[in-house]
């Protein structure tokens, strides 16, 4: 007889079967994700000595990264741009998610979501590149405005700066923000709104006191899901950012592929991950506290 494991009469226990199945994907993730991430961490404590790598552990790279104004500025700017993109994206996304969830007929919701997701699945590179074409000195936007006589000379503040990066990224990550908020809104029991109205709350205060708090987990997910990839974005700064729009990913690439200073690149990568982690933890913590406060 079996020793009391929860198993459907086939000998092996449930846990053993689970481990057997998950072993391959887990091994893959360990070898190609955990090990490389560990290697990056290790590298960041080494230092580049011209062509060879000095493997004595040192904090030199971190000291340099945090004291050199160039690196500091890049890190800070990445954070600011990411924050701006996140805010713009999530604020713009909420009404869409709200509209689709509350005002679109149930049988047409899937189609709306499909429409919203399609652009996301088309080549990211092409989409970013198109913004360069649109916003450029001789781009679609400027030539159109010139042709219509609205402006006398091309606008220059819209390309090759941080603004352009924010616009482009906000566009690229829009579906990412809409989906989690939509899912959270969909989960809200519609009778809660009727209950709130029944108890004397108006439309706005119902939104404020019922809808928004219940949608908060979706908003937090949207914030994280936009913030995390944008902070490490490489393509957009290069194509539309100009010198003022460079971000940390560009410097990491430069360190690895151009300057051949892998340890410095590794340290910057670790710092980026650290920033991501801190922001993620703050939001997860806020969400938890918020949820607990409600219970």
């Amino acid at each position: 007889m079996n020793d009391g494991n929860r198993g459907p009469g086939f000998g092996r226990s449930e846990a053993a079967q689970g481990y057997l199945l998950v072993a391959t994907p887990l091994a893959y993730a360990l070898l190609l994700l955990a090990v490389p991430l560990g290697a990056i961490l290790l590298f960041s404590f080494w230092s580049q000595d011209y062509l060879t790598i000095d493997t004595t552990l040192t904090l030199k790279n971190y000291r340099e990264a945090l004291s050199d104004p160039l690196y500091r500025q890049l890190l800070l700017r990445s954070l600011m741009i990411s924050a701006a993109v996140t805010m713009a994206t999530v604020l713009a996304a909420f009404p869409i998610a709200y509209y689709v969830s509350f005002y679109v007929a149930p049988e047409r919701k899937a189609m709306w979501i499909f429409l919203i997701t399609i652009p996301f699945w088309t080549s990211y590179l092409i989409r970013v590149f198109l913004w360069k074409v649109i916003l450029g000195y001789n781009g679609v936007f400027n030539t159109t405005l010139l042709g219509l006589g609205i402006i006398d000379e091309p606008l220059t503040f819209i390309l090759y700066n941080a603004n352009a990066v924010v616009i482009t990224l906000a566009h690229a990550y829009a579906p990412f923000a809409i989906l989690p908020i939509f899912v959270a809104l969909e989960k809200i029991d519609r009778s809660l709104h009727e209950a709130s109205r029944d108890l004397g709350e108006g439309y706005l205060s119902t939104f404020w006191r019922v809808t928004l708090p219940l949608a908060m987990p979706g908003v937090v997910a949207a914030v994280l899901i936009v913030f995390i990839p944008t902070i490490g974005d490489y393509v957009t700064p290069v194509l539309v950012g100009g010198p003022d729009g460079r971000m940390i990913a560009n410097m990491i690439q430069t360190q690895f592929l151009r300057l051949n200073n892998a340890p410095m690149g590794a340290a910057l990568a670790v710092l980026t991950m650290a920033m991501v982690t801190v922001v993620a933890l703050v939001f997860v913590f806020l969400n938890r506290r918020y949820l607990r406060g409600r219970e």
Partner: peptide
């Protein structure tokens, strides 16, 4: 375990790229 496998979903791609490159 599932968290580790799903991690690339919330990791900037550049990090995945450079860490693999280094190894």
């Amino acid at each position: 375990i599932m968290g580790l496998i799903m991690l690339p979903l919330v990791l900037p791609e550049i990090i995945v790229a450079v860490s693999l490159l280094v190894v």
